[in-house]
Design a protein around this nucleic acid. Structure first.
Lengths: 342, 342
DNA sequence: ATGAAAGCGCTAACAC
DNA sequence: GTGTTAGCGCTTTCAT
């Protein structure tokens, strides 16, 4: 049996109008929920529409009315739990604000090329606003569109002051984690320092961690990293040799990797070395007991949408630049340093 | 400083045509990458377009050509790592197949109402095909559109034979997990059994687990559950009393919850009771050592897109109904049962 | 190789 | 309250 016989052309508004014995305008009014339509007309139109399986063509209506009410969301990678949750929360908040969101994921390949395809695609769909939840798109790439529709960055520190942004207070996160560790007596600490162009948020975190560590009187061994997994062995080596008593990572994924490597060597945290991460989103983190910092995804999503609504309605006309605070999550993978043991 | 001065109307094809001194038709041809255009015209058009920041209006082009080439993806919740990963992989596979994907998340509230809004929205956007990665939409709701465009369900067992589907072999998953546990000597096992209307995949898993347990000679204590967290205490009670020596869960999230409850009571797996989950996607599962079953997300995404391409091109004209196999992941939360200890 | 003209399905004045 | 008339920005014959 053939699965699809395709063709059966979508019924149009004219089909409905004809079948209902009214003008196309009336049908339009019914679907737009406009006032000037009689009860009876509404009923007949709805009935006929259902019967025919009519679904308004948003493409056409968007064209005609010049402007859809849906906002576009540009994503990078929902496989990362932190982004997956952000995605979900943004959707929810948007929904509650009466906004429809359509999202596209940028391809990961060629930095700066394929990326923009999704941007153009969304712009081309005439979305009424754009939420950019990925660093894969630079502020420069957003520039040409800033004057055409509100664009707000969500979840990434925005270095420029040109585009609206609601981001996590990564500096605070780094400082809190750093202080926690120096407060526990650690004086030589390895920091996995992500390159800025690999992940700007992680770079900011690592930088803040390093700063706090220095302020707390600790010496820092900086290990520049790009992809998850980089320098993990090196860090563990340092710990095994007793060169450092703590390894700090700018993300939970990297911290888990360190934990894994430690385990592979028969070492463990915090007995042999303290380990910290950052994000705090993954389910099950509590079971692992990772010391981390929990970013306020829910709050960020809320602020992002609230601001977007303000931007859309024109109530806000200045550049939005907010940071939301998170929570330190002390775990069992970090603990006080006992100099005597080394 | 005003952030947005809006208005600056998007440049249209006519603007470009005018500025380039050619007809709109030529501009169209250039952007459609059609053959019959002179090198020189192409150059000038591209140049002018860039200058003006022109982005083709897909809405209009879709209307005119009757049919976008993008496919719609209906999601439920990307916060669940398994769905987040599926989402990501579907995007990647689609991208590699030259398909653009736009996705919408269905609202979670009223079963069957708001849900359909996203469906209609996507249909209304005239997508050329639909991937449904959520159980939130019933097959009945998809029915009216089956004849208009290819619809394929991804990641959920599809009970009917009407709509295309690529799903995980949940029955195999359940059987393998059940056999593992009986093979380890467990004879009285508690199974968190999700209600079918809460989560069909979990229901199938739990049912298969129960079946395998029975076949392996074990007695099953069925604990009907809905939301994550349900019956967790009850299960732990049974274990504490020695009524069961293993607790099997139809998802990792539930298993983690059990582990957490166990920990809260000072009990642990597998010493006091064996615990198993199902999904195997969460990062860090290996550190927790959870015994689980890893569903083949990557493979599923690949098959889903491959089939979609076939459906789109008309190469496939029968109903697609595939299941992809996963992998048993024996962990450290389950172990042999030692009757003497109880 | 290029242009002119006719819509795609819908909304938005503007009459009635 | 309802219908009429223009388009929205683009693709597409069909000429040239």
């Amino acid at each position: 049996m053939a699965a699809d016989s395709r063709e059966p052309r979508q019924p149009t508004m004219d089909d409905v109008a004809l079948a209902a014995g009214v003008s196309r305008t009336s049908v339009s009014r019914v679907f737009l929920g406009q006032s000037k339509v009689s009860r009876e007309t509404i009923r007949r139109v709805r009935e006929v529409a259902d019967e025919l399986g009519y679904v308004p063509n948003r493409i056409a209506s968007g064209l005609a009315s010049g402007g859809s009410s849906t906002v576009g969301l540009l994503l990078r990678d929902a496989a990362n739990p932190a982004y997956g949750l952000l995605f979900t929360r943004l959707q929810r908040e948007a929904h509650e604000a009466g906004l429809d969101i359509i999202s596209m994921t940028i391809a990961e390949d060629h930095r700066g090329h394929k990326q923009v395809a999704a941007l153009d695609h969304l712009i081309g769909m005439q979305v009424s606003a754009l939420i950019v939840a990925t660093g894969g798109v630079t502020s420069d790439q957003l520039d040409p569109f800033r004057s055409r529709l509100p664009i707000i960055r969500a979840g990434r520190p925005e270095p420029t002051t040109r585009v609206h942004a609601v981001s996590y207070d990564e500096v605070d996160a780094g400082h809190r984690l750093g202080s926690l560790v120096t407060g526990q007596g650690h004086r030589r600490v390895a920091v996995l320092h992500t390159e800025a162009d690999e992940s700007y948020p992680e770079w900011v975190r690592a930088t803040a961690i390093t700063e706090a560590l220095g302020a707390g009187g600790a010496e820092v061994v900086t290990l520049p990293v790009r992809r998850v997994g980089d320098q993990v062995e090196a860090a563990v080596d340092l710990a095994a040799r007793g060169t450092v008593s703590a390894i700090m990572c700018p993300s939970d994924a990297r911290a888990l990797d360190v934990l894994r490597a430690l385990q592979g060597r028969g070492l463990s945290a915090p007995d042999d070395v303290s380990v910290t991460g950052c994000d705090g989103i993954m389910p099950g983190l509590d079971l692992i007991g990772l010391t981390t910092f929990r970013v306020a995804v829910e709050h960020l999503a809320h602020r992002a949408i609230t601001n977007l609504v303000g931007l859309l309605s024109g109530d806000i006309d200045s550049v939005v630049h907010e940071e939301v605070a998170g929570t330190l999550v002390p775990g069992r993978t970090s603990g006080p340093h006992h100099p005597l043991e080394n």
